[in-house]
């Protein structure tokens, strides 16, 4: 069985993972949400069409999204150092996780908003709503079920990504699994890490599904 020391390590790793995922998810949402809204409303034929802005921001988002995460982590080390003051440790790992999460969330929000029935935008315009009101009173509330699902997906992805930040000494469950389970050949540690991750992902997914169901008022009666 697992020794008390290993269990301590496991708990610390779990806390590190939760810390990294929560902070990068939260900051990623703060950055990604407005970018996603901006992308959705500046597209062709949209509320505030601005194709130059849309293409430039879209290209930046795509660049980040198409860089493999492990390369992103290493490539932005100078930036990480600038922000976190260090390039090693859990706090440092939050920077690349956030940089990866923000564009992912931006695309999710963009898609969620584009799925909102255009008739609602027209109705709001007919009521004399400003573009800002259309975003805050119509688009975001109506897109909320899809955004909640998308944020859940992002959180699960971040849990996966967080396993890779061991490369910069980020700590967390993935790091524990690699260093103890793989490099020191302790298969029971590896198994324990995998089980904890599975349970964690299940909890995140179930919570996300529950929230999405709560905010979705679309299918209350057939």
């Amino acid at each position: 069985m697992l020794s008390p020391q290993i269990i301590d390590l496991l708990i610390k790793a779990l806390i590190d993972t939760l810390h990294m995922v929560a902070v990068s998810g939260a900051i990623g949402t703060l950055i990604g949400l407005p970018i996603g809204v901006a992308l959705a409303v500046t597209g062709r034929g949209e509320l505030l069409q601005n194709l130059v802005f849309n293409r430039i921001v879209g290209a930046v988002v795509n660049m980040t999204r198409s860089t493999p995460f492990i390369i992103l982590v290493v490539a932005i080390i100078p930036f990480t150092r600038l922000i976190a003051g260090t390039s090693i440790g859990t706090s440092a790992a939050i920077v690349p996780l956030t940089v990866a999460a923000a564009p992912f969330i931006a695309r999710i929000v963009e898609n969620a908003i584009r799925e909102v029935d255009r008739g609602l935008i027209e109705a709001a315009q007919a009521m004399g709503a400003t573009p800002f009101q259309i975003v805050t009173k119509v688009l975001l509330p109506e897109a909320m079920p899809a955004i909640a699902m998308g944020l859940t997906l992002s959180a699960v992805s971040l849990i996966g990504y967080s396993a890779m930040v061991g490369a910069v000494g980020g700590g967390g469950l993935g790091d524990l699994g690699i260093r103890y389970g793989y490099q020191r050949f302790l298969p029971e540690v590896m198994l324990a890490v995998v089980v904890v991750l599975i349970v964690l992902v299940q909890i995140v997914q179930s919570t996300g599904d529950w929230i999405a169901r709560r905010v979705n008022k679309r299918h209350l009666k057939v």
Partner: peptide, 20 residues
């Protein structure tokens, strides 16, 4: 926008907010 406040509109597919 001000003028539109005095022109109401109804639609074939109602266009109600599902979240409200």
């Amino acid at each position: 926008r001000e003028a539109r406040h005095s022109i109401g509109m109804i639609f074939q597919h109602f266009n109600l907010l599902s979240s409200r």
